[in-house]
């Protein structure tokens, strides 16, 4: 049962392995704090919509399942959006339109389609939670790397020495693509090594 949770962390990491949810991964990770917030918001949506869909999986007719899933997801995204706007206005402003765009994060719909719509509640919670944590750690790492190299800070605190010239490119779109490409290559090479090839 633990396997269901752990597989999302590394072996089937939604971003590195399955290339799902790329838009928010690349767009908001200009700092570690943005990465954490986006990761947690997405985790909340994937877990809570997973719970609802798993509970009602026998009642949803298969022909209209995609629209039904989408509406359930959109409902939870609306909740997250309102909570962020009310409680964390700074983060809400930073993330901007990428909060409502969680609706079309293919990671979320993909999990409902592949797992929660055909598995009991406890397994669905573990699976979506694993995917959420896997997504969050990667976004935090990517945001951290880009923040350290691009601004010389981490979580807003200065970490690089005074003479360090920030690499602005890391905060621009090109830096996001290249950093994620290098992280994915590292992921591949670790996997290749552990397979002994």
């Amino acid at each position: 049962m633990l396997k269901v949770f752990v597989k999302g962390l590394w072996k089937e990491n939604p971003v590195l392995m399955q290339l799902l949810g790329m838009c928010p991964t690349l767009a908001v990770t200009t700092s570690a704090i943005n990465g954490v917030s986006m990761g947690l918001a997405t985790s909340f949506v994937v877990v809570s919509s997973g719970i609802v869909i798993s509970l009602f999986r026998k009642l949803i007719p298969p022909q209209v399942r995609i629209p039904v899933f989408t509406i359930i997801i959109a409902t939870f995204v609306t909740i997250v959006d309102m909570v962020l706007k009310a409680g964390f206005p700074d983060i809400s402003r930073e993330l901007g339109p990428y909060v409502p765009l969680i609706v079309v994060n293919c990671l979320i719909l993909g999990r409902q389609e592949a797992f929660t719509s055909r598995n009991p509640l406890h397994l669905s919670v573990l699976d979506t939670l694993g995917m959420g944590v896997g997504f969050t750690w990667l976004l935090t790492l990517l945001g951290g790397v880009r923040e350290i190299l691009g601004a010389g800070t981490l979580m807003g605190a200065q970490v690089m020495p005074g003479g360090f010239e920030p690499l602005i490119i890391m905060l621009l779109p090109a830096g996001a693509f290249i950093t994620l490409g290098i992280l994915a290559a590292l992921y591949n090479s670790v996997n290749l090594k552990s397979e002994g090839r």
Partner: peptide
């Protein structure tokens, strides 16, 4: 392409250069 970069990584890096060009 180096083995570790095969598949997604090289595409991402290419997209990065494309983004650089569009800048």
């Amino acid at each position: 392409v180096p083995r570790a970069f095969k598949g997604a990584p090289v595409v991402l890096v290419t997209a990065g250069f494309l983004a650089l060009a569009f800048m």
